[in-house]
Computed example of a mutant assay.
Amino acid sequence: MLLQHKDGQGTPAPGTEAVSLTSVRKVYGKGAAAVTALDDVTVGIPRGSFTAVMGPSGSGKSTFLHCAAGLDTPTSGTVRLGGTDLSGMNEVKLTELRRARVGFVFQAFNLVSSLDVAQNVTLPLRLSGTRTDKRWLEEILARVGLTERAHHRPAQLSGGQQQRVAIARALITRPEVIFGDEPTGALDTVTGRDVLTLLRQAVDETGQTVVMVTHDPVAAGYADTVLFLADGRIADSMAKPSADRVAERMAVLGGRA
Score class of each variant (00 low, 15 high):
residue 225 T to A: 05
residue 50 F to N: 06
residue 5 H to E: 15
residue 24 V to Y: 09
residue 192 G to I: 02
residue 84 T to R: 06
residue 220 A to M: 12
residue 56 P to D: 15
residue 2 L to Q: 13
residue 144 V to S: 08
residue 173 T to H: 09
residue 33 A to K: 14
residue 97 L to M: 15
residue 222 Y to E: 03
residue 95 T to C: 05
residue 72 D to R: 06
residue 3 L to T: 14
residue 51 T to H: 00
residue 119 Q to D: 13
residue 54 M to V: 04
residue 78 T to M: 01
residue 233 R to L: 04
residue 181 D to R: 07
residue 113 S to K: 05
residue 195 V to N: 08
residue 1 M to L: 12
residue 20 S to H: 12
residue 160 G to E: 12
residue 164 R to W: 06
residue 229 L to E: 02
residue 178 I to R: 08
residue 138 E to S: 13
residue 20 S to K: 10
residue 178 I to M: 09
residue 219 A to L: 01
residue 150 A to I: 00
residue 192 G to D: 08
residue 210 V to F: 11
residue 21 L to D: 10
residue 179 F to T: 04
residue 49 S to P: 12
residue 159 G to Q: 04
residue 256 R to W: 12
residue 91 E to T: 00
residue 29 G to R: 10
residue 86 L to C: 02
residue 169 R to M: 01
residue 93 K to L: 03
residue 205 E to L: 08
residue 140 I to Y: 12
residue 79 V to K: 03
residue 94 L to V: 03
residue 163 Q to A: 02
residue 187 L to S: 05
residue 135 R to P: 11
residue 26 K to D: 08
residue 15 G to W: 07
residue 190 V to A: 10
residue 189 T to F: 10
residue 24 V to K: 06
residue 154 P to G: 04
residue 44 G to Q: 04
residue 65 L to T: 01
residue 197 T to I: 00
residue 190 V to L: 10
residue 142 A to R: 14
residue 63 T to A: 01
residue 94 L to R: 07
residue 87 S to Y: 00
residue 97 L to H: 05
residue 182 E to M: 00
residue 253 L to I: 06
residue 87 S to Q: 01
residue 160 G to N: 13
residue 168 A to P: 06
residue 112 V to N: 03
residue 157 L to Y: 03
residue 235 A to K: 09
residue 118 A to F: 06
residue 127 L to C: 07
residue 13 A to Q: 15
residue 39 D to L: 06
residue 227 L to Q: 06
residue 154 P to Y: 00
residue 217 P to A: 08
